[in-house]
């Protein structure tokens, strides 16, 4: 064996060790869940499932509580995404292209959404919601989801609008296009990747949001992650694993579809100025 490792060289071995640790630590828990979800019997000392089956899928998909939560989660996520786009994309365009008084202060005010720890903020929001009667309402849940993604929903599109070259817009204008047509046919298509990434981010983070909903949406707004809170304790591990996969599926599908657009650079522009 040792001659084999020697022929690989030190660099390769280090790379392999890092890769193995990475897979074990980051993907191990997920692989474990995937195995659990399709196992029929997996008793303690066995290192791998003793039999495979789909029984737990039937069990999970026949629980009315779970089906209801899936519908609710998607409804909330869609409303949140649409609302975020309507509110944030125009603001992003204004930050990138229009000069107006105090624009910098407005831009930096979005940093406030990240300048406070989440759970502390949710408690503060819950205290306010209690006073104005938004506790345990659809609107309250939507608002708490929107505020979570407000900053990158504004900053990522703003960065992409800025990256569109002015010369191209001006060329279209010289060719006789009106300002709206320039935006629709030139600016928007070129900045679409950033807007798509931000929207997907928003959709997914709404779908996965648990803490804020737990604070302001209980007991009537049980989204998928909240059902999962209960499932961790009450369901057998296999059923919990099946539900986990159901909850992760939209994430995987959306990421796969949009993988062309998702890059460290685009995502980082939602958190830092460049």
């Amino acid at each position: 064996m040792s001659w084999y490792f020697k022929s690989l060289g030190k660099r390769k071995i280090i790379e392999f060790i890092i890769f193995a640790l990475f897979i074990f630590f980051f993907l191990g828990p997920l692989i474990n869940l995937a195995l659990l979800a399709f196992s029929g019997k997996w008793q303690f000392p066995a290192a791998l499932p003793q039999s495979w089956s789909f029984t737990w899928w039937k069990f999970v998909l026949s629980q009315p509580e779970i089906l209801k939560s899936i519908g609710l989660s998607f409804l909330i996520a869609i409303v949140v995404t649409v609302l975020s786009i309507v509110v944030c994309v125009p603001a992003a365009y204004a930050f990138a292209r229009i000069r107006f008084p105090l624009s910098k202060w407005f831009l930096f005010s979005f940093l406030l959404t990240n300048a406070f720890p989440k759970m502390g903020l949710y408690v503060a929001i819950a205290v306010l919601f209690f006073k104005v009667g938004l506790m345990n309402t659809f609107m309250g849940v939507v608002l708490i989801h929107v505020v979570n993604t407000l900053m990158y929903m504004t900053w990522i599109p703003a960065a992409s609008f800025k990256n569109v070259h002015k010369a191209q817009e001006e060329a279209a204008r010289d060719a006789g296009a009106g300002p709206f047509r320039v935006f629709w046919n030139v600016t928007l298509p070129m900045s679409l990747p950033g807007i798509i990434v931000a929207s997907i981010f928003t959709f997914l983070s709404s779908l996965d949001e648990a803490q804020g909903t737990f604070m302001v949406g209980m007991p009537d707004f049980k989204t998928m992650p909240l059902i999962m809170y209960g499932a961790v304790q009450d369901y057998p591990a296999t059923a919990g694993a099946v539900f986990s996969i159901l909850l992760t599926l939209p994430t995987i599908i959306l990421l796969f579809v949009s993988r062309r657009f998702v890059s460290a650079d685009v995502m980082s522009s939602g958190f830092t100025m460049k």
Binding site: F106, V127, V146
Partner: peptide
């Protein structure tokens, strides 16, 4: 007119921010 337009485009998200971050902090 353009800068007024810019303000109008930014204000909705700013109010959201005010209502969801600044006001709650003072309330708490």
């Amino acid at each position: 007119r353009r800068s007024a337009l810019g303000l109008v485009m930014v204000l909705p998200s700013f109010f959201l921010l005010l209502f969801m971050i600044v006001v709650p902090i003072f309330t708490s």
